[in-house]
Design a protein around this nucleic acid. Structure first.
Length: 192
DNA sequence: GGAACGATTGAT
DNA sequence: TCAATCGTTCCT
């Protein structure tokens, strides 16, 4: 319905490039309660020599998946409440990833509405914590393989001219880097 | 063992 | 502007 998973080689590249090229792709999750899908409209890169990166000071119990194969899913708990999802990038042994911050809902909208407690379409996957809640992702999916069913990215790129770069949100260090990527004029962004 | 700090969200 | 909420990290 939405195509086959993007291959490991898609993720095994420079993290900022992958973050930019993830805009417009579709996150798919085949679950027991139905097919969930959303088009990615906002990402953030957490890359090399980056003090905002969870892996900046090396491998720990929490961030170890970031050092795994490209294409793995890194899931972490934010503020003790919100599960946030990332695609692991670069070669194995390198701790970098792309945070998925917002989606345009495409399928499974009724399920998302129930989980999110709202029927407002533009709020279903608005922000990384909301994406995790809408897709019902938690620590159990940490380390799963985005190049395989049932949870994967698929689809084609959008024109580069429709993508804008902005400062990342919610960090206190390396705030000058334009490593947040947004689909221009999308109503589903976490912020304008 | 203890304390400070979040890659956030939603209500006021 | 601020509370909720708790795991992770770092210091003692």
């Amino acid at each position: 319905m939405f195509g086959e998973p993007l291959p490991e080689l898609f993720y095994a590249r420079d993290t900022v490039t992958v973050a930019r090229e993830m805009i417009g792709r579709v996150l798919v999750y085949e679950t027991e309660v139905g097919l969930l899908a959303g088009r990615i409209v906002e990402t953030e890169a957490y890359g090399a020599d980056d003090p905002a990166n969870h892996a900046f000071r090396g491998m720990t119990l929490r961030n170890r998946v970031m050092f795994g194969r490209p294409g793995l899913l890194y899931v972490y708990l934010s503020y003790g409440m919100h599960w946030c999802i990332n695609a692991v990038t670069m070669a194995e042994g390198v701790g970098e990833a792309v945070l998925i911050r917002a989606l345009e809902p495409l399928a499974g909208i009724t399920v998302m509405e129930q989980r999110r407690g709202t029927t407002e379409l533009r709020r279903l996957c608005k922000g990384p914590g909301s994406v995790g809640q809408a897709f019902s992702i938690n620590g159990a999916q940490n380390g799963s393989d985005l190049t395989r069913h049932p949870l994967f990215l698929t689809g084609d790129p959008i024109p580069d001219t429709e993508i804008m770069a902005r400062p990342r949100i919610g960090i206190s260090r390396a705030t000058e880097r334009l490593w947040r990527f947004c689909r221009q004029d999308s109503p589903f962004l976490s912020r304008k």
